[in-house]
């Protein structure tokens, strides 16, 4: 899929692409996602490695933002404790729509190793904010981050902008 792939089939030899306006907007949106990096624990170190020269996360068009108001999605990397949970909720509410959440690592997916006796660990960030993509692992490998990012782009590409519940291509 993807808008530019249709260039292989030019309309009357002219390099014209026919498509919906939503597809064009989604194409732009999915290729320049700015994220609020929410580094919490071990996963944040893997994410630093992901951001550095070897894996180069920015080739997905992502730029780290420190303010939630400029961010398209929030990357929750690490264990969410109760002390932190309230802050995450406040930050998420400050973000402008459309907004997405990637939950990275076992801890923020489900509590992870702290599931059973963690009296101060929130058992999954999806208990307070809605999550779009879960990346498993403790901590996930940088390849898993790439996969998660691609899944998010896939999701954005399918979304109808004016009716968020409807998927593109389905009538």
């Amino acid at each position: 899929m993807g808008l530019l792939n249709r260039l292989d089939d030019p309309y009357e030899g002219g390099g014209i692409v026919l498509g919906k306006i939503e597809e064009l907007l989604n194409w732009g949106r999915s290729k320049s996602d700015w994220y609020l990096h929410f580094g919490l624990a071990c996963c944040a170190i893997e994410f630093m490695a992901m951001n550095a020269s070897h894996f180069d996360f920015m080739r997905f068009g992502t730029i780290p933002r420190t303010s939630p108001r400029q961010a398209d999605f929030i990357m929750v990397t690490g264990t969410v404790t109760f002390k932190m949970a309230e802050r995450i909720k406040i930050l998420y509410e400050q973000m402008a729509e459309p907004k997405y959440v990637i939950s990275v690592g076992s801890c923020s997916n489900s509590g992870g190793p702290y599931w059973e006796h963690g009296y101060h660990v929130l058992k999954g960030v999806d208990r307070i904010i809605p999550v779009d993509v879960y990346i498993p692992g403790c901590p996930p490998r940088p390849e898993a981050f790439e996969e998660g990012m691609m899944k998010l782009q896939e999701k954005i590409n399918k979304q109808a902008i004016f009716n968020k519940r409807k998927l593109l291509g389905t009538e």
């Binding site: 109760f82 309230e86 009296y119 929130l122 058992k123 208990r127 307070i128």
Partner: peptide, 12 residues
Amino acid sequence: VTPDSYHGMKIS
């Protein structure tokens, strides 16, 4: 004994 919830968030 671990409490059930903290500020409305379930603990276990």
